[in-house]
Nucleic acid binder design. Structure first.
Length: 377
DNA sequence: CCTGCCGGGGG
DNA sequence: CCCCCGGCAGG
């Protein structure tokens, strides 16, 4: 009698906070559907996938709704963050409008060069719950001053004259060498790496990846309780930017068709692409958003991340690959460059797993003779 | 050989 | 879009 109200309140709050978990519900439900369907109609496997994608979108929307409806509990921000915010916001704007952005070649932790992932494939480590984040969290902690995400400097590759394939390899190697250097000696002074929130109408800029992630997590995703937990989603809503504190020379040099010296991105391939599936992977290892794998691999050749800077409005859904393209561009595709096929996955594929007889159990991609989405290497 | 899957084409 | 499949290329 006296506590009903209290309880209600409690529940309400709980629900909203937990919304993200809805995802699992969706999937679970779907799975059941699938199972029942499986016994009847062939071809549902692929529908399952469709649904899956849809679910993700749904979830996405829900989150947005939640984050805007709920008055997100005052996320705790460090005063540092706040200051950064203001001071840099202006800088960012200026720099954005003045020159093309140049991503700092992120200093890659060795692990990423030969870790559990390779060439765009990313195998979530099963040993730790945070495995999916191997690049993100760790690099952040150990390297507070360096950008962690696979960021890229973008554009110049686009200007390169399409040369033969060997060239690509060459470049990749060169890049790798450069990684060892602390930083591309050319222009590193007075460069500040910041992270900008891409959430609609936000544009917050923080100095650390961790900071921006937390920001997104708490403010936009409405995950307040679990400040540590991260399914990687935040990464979709921020991008790295470089602030030139003293000149514009930077922007110019980046435009120069001949500045391979700069193009020294960590061999950090399409890992982002995996991100979308990260959450799913937890429960459903075999499912992932379409394109997540193949798209990025192809796109990084063409993409200039400007589009994304300007219109951070879109969400990750299907085009997951694109969203993060900005980060991926600079990263030199390991040993593959232009027109070269990607190394070909080696893991089991639908065809092998289910056999020709059960073709209808294959993932859509496999059925279409595309890169398998279910058993990613 | 077999197999993954790109590129391209048809509905 | 969704779907197929020729044919190339790695193993």
């Amino acid at each position: 009698m006296t506590f009903p109200a209290f309880q209600q309140e409690d529940v309400k709050y709980d629900v909203s906070q937990k919304l993200p978990d809805q995802q699992f519900l969706l999937f679970t439900t779907k799975e059941e559907d699938l199972k029942t369907a499986e016994t009847k109609k062939p071809n549902r496997a692929h529908e399952y996938e469709k649904e899956n994608t849809r679910s993700v979108c749904l979830l996405e929307q829900k989150r947005k709704v939640v984050s805007s409806n709920i008055d997100v509990p005052p996320a705790r921000k460090s005063s540092e963050e706040l200051d950064m915010d203001k001071v840099t916001a202006a800088m960012v704007l200026t720099s954005l409008s003045t020159s093309p952005l140049v991503r700092s070649p992120p200093v890659r932790p060795n692990e990423s060069l030969n870790g559990s992932w390779k060439e765009g494939g990313f195998v979530p480590s099963s040993t730790s719950s945070s495995g999916y984040w191997s690049w993100n969290a760790p690099s952040d902690q150990s390297n507070p001053s360096t950008p962690s995400p696979p960021l890229s400097a973008d554009s110049f590759k686009v200007f390169r004259t399409p040369s033969q394939t060997d060239d690509g390899i060459d470049e990749a190697e060169t890049s790798n060498l450069l990684f060892d250097e602390p930083i591309p000696r050319k222009r590193k002074n007075s460069m500040k790496v910041m992270f900008k929130c891409l959430w609609k109408n936000c544009g917050k800029v923080l100095s650390t990846a961790a900071g921006i992630q937390k920001h997104i997590r708490t403010i936009h995703l409405g995950r307040v309780g679990e400040s540590d937990y991260s399914d990687g989603e935040e990464d979709f809503y921020y991008t790295e930017i470089r602030l030139n504190t003293d000149s514009v020379a930077d922007g110019l040099s980046s435009l120069s068709p001949v500045s391979p010296s700069l193009a020294s991105p960590p061999a950090f391939p399409t890992q982002d692409a995996i991100r979308p599936e990260t959450s799913c992977a937890k429960t459903e290892t075999k499912l992932m958003t379409p394109l997540s794998r193949s798209a990025p691999t192809n796109l990084y050749l063409v993409h200039t991340d400007h589009a994304y800077q300007v219109s951070p409005t879109h969400n990750r859904p299907a085009g997951s690959g694109e969203q993060k393209q900005s980060h991926t561009v600079l990263s030199s595709p390991p040993r593959v460059a232009f027109g070269l096929r990607k190394p070909r996955g080696e893991g089991k594929k639908c065809r092998k797993v289910y056999g020709m007889e059960n073709r209808d159990m294959w993932c859509t991609a496999c059925r279409w003779k595309k890169a398998c989405q279910r058993f990613i290497d």
